[in-house]
Structures are given as C-alpha cells and as structure tokens.
C-alpha cells in the first residue's frame, strides 16, 4: 500500500465524535476525567449482575422485597446502585397469573443502573413495536411459552421511569444462598422475555 506510513483516515462517525469531544473539552463543558470515568463505569462496572443481586435478595428477604416493590429506587440504592439521570426505578413482580415485559417504544430507555446497557434487539424497531402489539409472539421467539391463562403486562419505559421485572423464583431452590440464586437470574428474565433459569443451570 502506498500510504501505509500514514494513519488510516477515520470514519465520518469517529470524526464527528472526536470533533464534538475536543470542542466541548476545550470549552470546559466536559471534564475529560469525568468522561473517562463514565465510560469505564458502563463498560466494566455495571451490568446484569447488579440486577441479579437485587432479584436474589428479593427472593430471600421478604422485607427487602416489600421495599423493592414499594420504592425500588431507594431499595436498589441501599445496595449501591444509583441512577445517574435521576430516573425512578419501578419493579414489576411476576406471579403465577401475571407475566411482565419491559420495552421502551420511543427510544430504548433502560434501567442501566441494574442491567448495564441494553442488547441490540431491545433497541430494534421490531421489538419496540411488537412487544406492545403481540407480546405473546415475541415471548415465544425467546422460547418463552406461557400458559393461556397467564396475563402479560407490558411496561413502556420513559425518561423518568425505568422498569425491572422480578421473575418468579424457580422451584427446588429452598435454602439456596443469595449468591447461588443470583446465577439463575439472567438479563433477559429481568426484561421479561424469559423466565429465571432452571436449577440445572447451576452446578449443585
């Protein structure tokens, strides 16, 4: 290649971000250290394990569960998970009769604090519309087949309120520690497209 002694020109997207970033930093509107801290947090420190810990605690501790259902923002804060956008968290509890499903029809709002960043399918137009119009079919595509008598409730997130599903605790887990229970809690079960994992998923 004749030009390999120069750096490859960046993509237009990269250039646009670099331009914004360098100008905003120069103007003192963005602190580069704060920016790095934010990126590091979301890349490495928050993720579905936070939510799994919340769910496992709710399964084990009735008082915590009651608090979580009443004021999820405060309850998860007690575990150190605090929303950065001042948003409220609300927890929707699955029961044998009601299954909850979370979506953001407008722009993919998501409970970052407890689930990290959303997967690509959550942000896709088909999921955003079909979760509302045909939730049962969407669930079936995730391999989740509910009995007909189970009602599905769909929660549409907003910039102010984000939702987290509290899945049903799998049977055969009596006496399990929170730590062990948390292995049964997948990200998808907290969005509501799947159920919590079977006990076989965890080494006994």
């Amino acid at each position: 290649m004749p030009h390999d002694h120069h750096t490859e020109p960046p993509s237009d997207l990269e250039l646009r971000v670099k331009s914004l970033e360098s100008l905003l930093v120069e103007k003192g509107l963005v602190n580069p250290e704060a920016l790095n801290e934010i990126i590091d947090t979301y890349e490495n420190k928050v993720g579905p394990m936070n939510g799994a810990r919340v769910v496992a605690k709710a399964w084990s501790d009735p008082e915590f569960k009651e608090w979580l259902l009443r004021d999820a923002t405060a309850a998860v804060k007690s575990l150190g998970y605090v929303g950065r956008q001042g948003e409220h968290l609300q927890v929707a509890e699955n029961t044998p009769k009601i299954h909850n499903l979370v979506v953001c029809t407008l722009c993919s709002c998501y409970p970052w604090t407890v689930l990290g960043l959303p997967p690509a399918w959550y942000k896709s137009a088909p999921y955003r519309s079909r979760a509302v119009s045909e939730p049962r079919a969407v669930l079936a595509e995730f391999g989740t087949v509910l009995e007909q008598q189970v009602n599905i409730r769909v929660w549409d997130s907003t910039s102010e309120v984000r939702y987290l599903v509290l899945p049903l605790r799998p049977t055969g887990t009596d006496g399990w520690s929170e730590e062990r229970l948390s292995h049964l809690v997948s990200r998808n079960s907290m969005i509501g497209v799947e159920l919590a994992r079977d006990t076989e998923a965890v080494d006994t």
Partner: peptide
C-alpha cells in the same frame, strides 16, 4: 462509547 459518555457528561 465516547458518544454515549459525552451525553451523560453534559
């Protein structure tokens, strides 16, 4: 990641 972080920082 940079674009994401910029929005949160602002």
């Amino acid at each position: 990641a940079q674009a994401f972080g910029l929005v949160l920082a602002l």
